[in-house]
Design a protein around this nucleic acid. Structure first.
Lengths: 349, 349
DNA sequence: ACGGACTGCACAATCGTTTGTGCAAATGGC
DNA sequence: GCCATTTGCACAAACGATTGTGCAGTCCGT
């Protein structure tokens, strides 16, 4: 089993070529013209290196240059449409800049976030993109102490640039759409729009609730607390809450703002138990997008966060080299039900 | 702007504590008992290190120990349910082993795969998990030459362990289900089951087609080539193909095996243009799972690949330290339509 | 033929760890 | 009180790259 010989180093190449390690190094990293190495020597060394399959040890280089070529990102979870799109953009942007992306998920666990950030810093990442931390300030302090540039994405943090989705605007537009599609007639609790899902002290959710309240207030008057059901992200919880709500109201509410796909999964879990015509008198919107969500038995308006724009903008901030605090908001898109395939198809996968 | 002072090193701690760097090192990496360092000294050093926020430079450690603490994985794309679940499991398994996961996507581009693998090797990853490469053999050679342990996941490769989904079994079960739900009556082309989506020379697809053919053969007799429409993964293409098929047949076929979610998206794009009762005489199955797919206007049987089991099994192989070629198959699960929320909910997100 | 500039490269220090080895001082047995 | 251990630590050489500096040799002008 040939798991034996090591990767060649510049010393091996130096010996084989009769040149010194420093000459080999500068030839192979492209700085040889500044060092007045002759073309002949360079070519000879390059050939030997190629024939032996040399490639630099990036740990050694990183150590010497005090730069790793790595750029880190932490996010809550991978297996989620939004965050996995974020990963995809992050990777593309990192590679454009000849950086190697390191993406870690922290499962919304504050301890894990801190440990992970410390680990990434220990690998000397050249910058850290923080997507949706539970305790942004703690991470700020750590990065600041370690002298590592960092930025926040999707969730604003202190002491660094923040590129976030314009949750207020997105929720406002979605709420307006729901209101405009709600049956005009009817009175009582059932005629009101409800908000379900998410955690109220979560930044994004709180902005969305704000927009929902304001928009409904302006149109239908006072929103009652009972209309806001911030029951977290678990599908099971959302399913129970919507069931209880329907029981209380004696049917579906006239409007429903579902805050997250996971809550929507739960809501659907209850909906499948209802007759098909149960949805005729209700307008449904979901903050976050899933292509299949647009193909249900009833129309669902969805808001798609612009993950690509978020990351691209974050990298633009990174490029400026200025890591002072500032806030940049990116507007999400409203997707109408069942329309996405009528036009041009996105080539995918 | 306090982006100035550097991270403390063992030399800083050594100076502050009056001990030597080697003593500091062994105290801080936990080997101090073997080196007969006194408890007093150890405690003193640990306190100073903690107060200054010391953490080891992992590049330097990696260089010295010829181990990086990194474990790499390459996959086609992040923004896909299957692969993002793979990422999630990979990360959990890596952390259990105190390794830092580095996940890179290569967009199914052979050049990119090679470049990425070389980069990861240059960072001295301790093992490489290859998920769905387009040219497995090339990657085998590179890893082998660099003396880096590697394994294949989801797609079998040469010269290393392969942990793959049992595509044949999954497709067989899905086909059987479709056949058993197909309307018994009817003759002619429309009474036949069709297979749509995927690339025929792709490993997974070819195994699935094999199973589809065999299962249909055994039940209904000879499958015609026209029944297999391996038109790739793009939703747009699948949409056109299903439209053309319906035109040719004068309606939906009695059975449809959709090979991938992206093809399914395309198929749905056509379906939404059809009347609601168009689906009464057809049985539909999809290889790959999406929770929303289970909530459509018509029942869809879905196969869920067991991504967690794939990765967990791959890590078990990794743990053995034996990287000789062998093949391990993991059976996927068949998910019945609209049933997943009837039972217990999966807590998620 | 002599001084200066230029060419082409080698030397050695350095990045922050780990780890084999060596050497005083403390300890213990007799 | 003497020798043999044992204890507690320091020294220095790696790991594989980068980079400032220095030094021969060649070339050129005069």
């Amino acid at each position: 089993m040939p798991y034996k010989k090591q990767k060649p180093t510049i010393y091996d190449i130096a010996e084989a070529s009769g040149a010194s390690p420093s000459t080999v190094s500068s030839v192979l990293n492209g700085t040889w013209k500044n060092r007045r190495i002759s073309e002949d020597t360079a070519k000879r060394i390059q050939e030997i290196a190629a024939s032996r399959g040399y490639s630099a040890n990036l740990q050694a280089r990183g150590l010497r240059k005090a730069k790793s070529g790595l750029v880190g990102m932490i996010l809550p979870v991978h297996d989620n449409r939004f965050f996995s799109s974020i990963s995809q953009s992050f990777e593309a942007n990192a590679r454009e800049r000849h950086l190697c992306p390191v993406i870690a998920s922290t499962l919304r666990d504050p301890q894990e976030e801190i440990r992970t950030v410390e680990t990434l810093i220990s690998y000397a990442v050249e910058a850290l993109f923080i997507v949706g931390a539970t305790d942004p300030d703690a991470l700020s302090r750590i990065c600041r102490a370690a002298n590592v540039p960092f930025l926040f994405v999707d969730l604003p943090g202190s002491d660094a640039p923040s590129v976030v989705s314009d949750n207020y605007h997105g929720a406002q537009v979605l709420t307006q759409t729901i209101l405009s599609e709600m049956p005009a007639s009817g009175t009582g609790k059932r005629a009101r729009p409800y908000f379900i899902g998410g955690t109220a002290d979560d930044y994004a959710t709180s902005r969305r609730i704000e927009a929902f309240r304001k928009t409904v207030d302006d149109t239908l008057g006072q929103v009652h607390d009972e209309q806001i059901i911030a029951c977290g992200y678990a599908p099971g919880r959302a399913a129970r809450e919507i069931r209880d709500l329907c029981d209380r109201l004696g049917g579906l509410p006239a409007g429903l703002f579902v805050n997250s796909l996971t809550a929507f999964e739960g809501v659907l879990g209850h909906f499948v138990t209802l007759p098909g015509d149960a949805f005729d008198q209700t307008a449904i919107g979901c903050y976050d997008y899933d292509p299949f969500g647009a193909f249900l038995q009833f129309p669902v308006h969805m808001v798609r966060q612009n993950s690509d724009a978020l990351i691209t903008m974050a990298f633009e901030q990174f490029d400026t080299g200025d890591f002072s605090p500032r806030m940049i908001e990116i507007k999400p898109d409203l997707i109408a039900p069942r329309t996405i395939y009528r036009g041009r198809f996105v080539e995918f996968g």
